[in-house]
Design a protein around this nucleic acid. Structure first.
Lengths: 245, 245
DNA sequence: TCACGCTCTATTGTAGACAGTAGTCAGATG
DNA sequence: CATCTGACTACTGTCTACAATAGAGCGTGA
């Protein structure tokens, strides 16, 4: 989804590019929970912490802003995106919409080798599940879904999906402690394997159904309770979610 | 869709922020056709042209990159996004998808005053149509659709839609000369008025139908013919489009 | 005691300069 | 004559330094 497709030139050894290093480091800090939503992100502090100068750091911040992980207030600095209930509503609904669109576009998959990224992600996920590495399972789970979306052959769609997936991970970091789906690691892997199976079978409807069932609805309820920023819309959505799920 | 919603603080008089000035100027240059797809965007040249220094210009470029108007190759500079046939396919399909989602969310409109931005855009469009200002009609047309999408009350959706609308305008700049829908200015305004009417009536299905009929299918055919970069997917899409339209 | 204004500090926005890399063209060699 | 190698040029990536702004804290006056 990134530089590998640049003008058809496969860059094996890319220039490390301080900006990219900084943005990757920052992203990791945020998704790992080292920086929590609402925390201020002060430029000078991070420059000494990451060992880069301010210009590349500012570029990194701008990149994360477009990924939705930080927000920048004009003259008051940057903050890790504070997540409201309405934000969760937006992230989840749009993510579902895009994933659905991708499946409609891509699921009777055109050539079998396109499935390799999906299969690779699944293997990594299963390995992580066996090893009991919860964080890795989450990460590979997102990679799996991203790969599925990639089947649509729609770059803009995949990019938008990726940003939403990142924000979703940000949300999940909120209740890492409170989360108790640890027992579900094996089940998680199994659900993903089933998903790959129906995709391989070329059954679009079954894929959509599996995605709908496999959504993060269970964990959503836990997250949302601890959040403010509800809107009529988000409340309505949450109510429907609880009734139907 | 922008700073006006920042933390609930309405910034009346914003700091001009060289970056924003630069990005606005650049956007205008690109959408007006002064810079055409494929043109290199050299930083030093623009700094003297716009009168800003390189850091803010680089921020502006990054902003435009996330809007999809320029692409940056790692150590080789930026170019105005070259539009391929597949790009048009992506832009149009995703735009339709997002607009549909927004209408599903927003169209039995919750409170009448939400329609004001839509009505304002329509008035501006009609004025421009009467004046025969073709460019203004196009711009206000996009503003109208953006306002319609805003009815969904879904910020992330609206942001994504805005980026796609910009890219759409970039495409339209491609065949400004060849375009001969000038006679359609009044009809254009009429279609938008009809759209507002069904929205006001709260008829979701009629709104969706009006949007589907009102799409830019006619002009798309003209654009696409001059483009390379076709893919199996884009070819298929185009064929269906021509059969059904 | 409270409200208002001022100063001061922390932090961001911007500028200019330097270094390193990619692309290009000329020259030499087979 | 073709091809490879070398230096050159232009551009980007990065850094340090300066200017300007917003927020906090304190002092003064009513």
């Amino acid at each position: 989804m990134d530089g590998a497709t640049n003008a058809g030139v496969a860059r094996i050894v890319g220039p490390p590019s301080m900006s990219k290093l900084a943005s990757d480091a920052l992203r990791t800090m945020i998704l790992s929970g080292e920086l929590r939503p609402g925390d201020r992100v002060v430029e000078n502090r991070l420059t000494v912490q990451l060992g880069v100068s301010r210009p590349p750091l500012r570029e990194a911040l701008k990149e994360l802003e477009y990924e939705g992980l930080v927000v920048q207030h004009p003259r008051r600095g940057a903050v890790v995106t504070p997540i409201t209930q309405h934000d969760v509503y937006e992230i989840v609904t749009m993510r579902e919409e895009l994933e659905t669109m991708a499946v409609r576009l891509g699921v009777p998959v055109r050539s079998p080798e396109l499935l390799r990224p999906v299969a690779d992600a699944l293997r990594a996920l299963e390995r992580a599940a066996e090893g009991g590495d919860e964080a890795a399972v989450t990460a590979h789970g997102f990679a799996f879904h991203l790969a599925v979306v990639g089947l649509g052959g729609h770059r803009r769609l995949a990019d938008a999906y990726r940003a939403l997936a990142l924000q979703m991970q940000l949300c999940m970091g909120l209740n890492r402690r409170a989360r108790k789906d640890r027992e579900d690691l094996a089940g998680n892997a199994a659900r993903h394997r089933e998903l790959l199976r129906v995709i391989e079978a070329g059954d679009q409807d079954a894929t959509l159904a599996a995605l709908a069932a496999h959504g993060h609805r269970t964990f959503l309820a836990e997250i949302v309770d601890g959040l403010g920023g509800a809107t009529p819309r988000s409340r309505e959505w949450l109510r429907e979610l609880r009734e139907n799920g």
